[in-house]
C-alpha cells in the first residue's frame, strides 16, 4: 500500500497546509494549527457550530467548514480524536455571542475531549450544547441508537443545523434541528479493501482478495459479516434492505440519498451502486430528493462505499435546500 507522503509525523499538518492554500475560504488557527475556521471569521450574533474529529476522512470533518454549514473544526491525528486544546479553540472561535453547538461523531476520544473542553470553557460563559452523529446502523441495534457511531450521514446534520443557524435561530433551536437531522439519518457501509495509517506498518485490518465486509466502520471497525465479493446490485440490495428495515419513527415518503465513496473506489462504481439504490428506492415508493454521489466521507485509501438515507419532512427539506458553500459541497 503505497502513499504519496513525506514524514508520517507531518501527514496531518502538511495536508492541512495544502488544503488551506487550495481553498482560501478556510484558515488554520488554534492550538498547534489544529483548528480550521472560516477565513472570514465568526458571524456576530449567529449560533456557532463547532465540529471535530480525527483526520483521514476528508472531506469530513474539516472540509465542511463554510457558509451554511459548520464554523470551526478541531482536528486530531489520523483516526484519533482532537485534543482538548483544539476543542477549546474550536468552540471559542465558533462563538459569535449566542452559544455554540458541538456537533460531531459518536466516538470515545472525541466525546471526552469536547466534554473536557466544555468544562474548561464554563467559566468563560460560552454556552454549549452537544449533538452526536449516530447514523451507522451496523454499530448498534434500533434499541441502542445512542451507542451507534457517526459516519457519512453526519453531513446532513451539518447542513440542517448550519442552515438553521444561518437563519438566525437560537442555540436551543439549532440544537433541536441538529438532533432531528441525526435522528432522521441512517447509513450502512461496505468495505472491499483496507487502508493503512501513515505511521503503521500494516493495513488497519485484513480482508482476503475476494472478500468484502458488510457494515464496516470508517476506521475499519468490524461490521456485520464477511463473505465473498458479489455483484454491485446484490450489495446495493442488501444495503437498501437493511436501511429500510431500520426506519426512523417519523419516516415519510421522501429521502435524500448519499452514495459515498470511502476513498479508493472510483466514481464509476459509485454510480453503478447509485443506479441500483435508486431503483430500489423507487420501488419502495420513496421520492429521492437532492441525491449526492461522490467522496464525502472517506477512510483514506479504503475501498468501499456507504449508503445514507436522510428521511425528509418539509422542515428538513427546506433546510437541505438552503444556500451553503464549502470546498466540497455547494447548494445555491
Amino acid at each position: 500500500m503505497k502513499k504519496l507522503i513525506n514524514d508520517p509525523a507531518h501527514y496531518v499538518d502538511e495536508a492541512l497546509d495544502g488544503l488551506t492554500l487550495a481553498f482560501p475560504s478556510l484558515a488554520r488557527d488554534g492550538a498547534a494549527g489544529r483548528v480550521i475556521r472560516r477565513a472570514e471569521g465568526v458571524t456576530s450574533g449567529k449560533v456557532g457550530i463547532a465540529s471535530g474529529g480525527g483526520f483521514g476522512h476528508l472531506p469530513l470533518f474539516t472540509g465542511y467548514v463554510g457558509r451554511g454549514l459548520i464554523d470551526t473544526c478541531s482536528i486530531g491525528n489520523v483516526f484519533e480524536g482532537p485534543n482538548i486544546d483544539s476543542c477549546v479553540d474550536a468552540i471559542r472561535l465558533a462563538d459569535g455571542g449566542r452559544g455554540v453547538l458541538r456537533l460531531y461523531g459518536n466516538y470515545g476520544g472525541d466525546r471526552m475531549n469536547f466534554d473536557m473542553a466544555g468544562e474548561v470553557l464554563e467559566d468563560e460563559g460560552i454556552r454549549c450544547t452537544t449533538v452526536l452523529g449516530t447514523d451507522d446502523i451496523a454499530s448498534g441495534g434500533p434499541d441502542e441508537i445512542g451507542r451507534r457511531r457517526g459516519v457519512a450521514g453526519l453531513i446532513y446534520a451539518y447542513k440542517a443545523a448550519g442552515a438553521s443557524a444561518d437563519r438566525g435561530a437560537d442555540l436551543e433551536e439549532v440544537t433541536r434541528v441538529a438532533a432531528k437531522a441525526v435522528a432522521a439519518t441512517r447509513t450502512i457501509g461496505v468495505g472491499l479493501a483496507p487502508c493503512r495509517l501513515p505511521s503503521a506498518a500494516k493495513p488497519s485490518f485484513e480482508l482476503a482478495e475476494d472478500e468484502i465486509e458488510m457494515g464496516i466502520g470508517i476506521h475499519g471497525e468490524p461490521g456485520i459479516w464477511r463473505d465473498r465479493l458479489r455483484p454491485a446490485d446484490a450489495i446495493a440490495d442488501e444495503m437498501v434492505d437493511r436501511l429500510l428495515a431500520d426506519l426512523p419513527a417519523h419516516a415519510g415518503s421522501e429521502v435524500s440519498v448519499l452514495v459515498n465513496g470511502l476513498g479508493a473506489t472510483p466514481l464509476e462504481e459509485l454510480f453503478i451502486l447509485y443506479r441500483r439504490v435508486r431503483k430500489r428506492l423507487d420501488d419502495a415508493r420513496l421520492n429521492v430528493f437532492q441525491p449526492l454521489v461522490g467522496n464525502y466521507v472517506t477512510s483514506m485509501e479504503m475501498q468501499g462505499a456507504s449508503v445514507s438515507l436522510f428521511h425528509l419532512d418539509e422542515e428538513l427539506k427546506t433546510l437541505l435546500c438552503a444556500p451553503a458553500e464549502c470546498p466540497f459541497w455547494r447548494v445555491s
Binding site: 498547534a32 491525528n77 484519533e80 482532537p82 485534543n83 471526552m112
Partner: peptide, 15 residues
C-alpha cells in the same frame, strides 16, 4: 499527553 493526542486511551491516561 493531552497535547499529544485526543484518542480515547491517550486522553484517559492523561486525564
Amino acid at each position: 499527553g493531552m497535547s499529544a493526542t485526543g484518542s480515547s486511551l491517550g486522553t484517559l491516561f492523561a486525564s
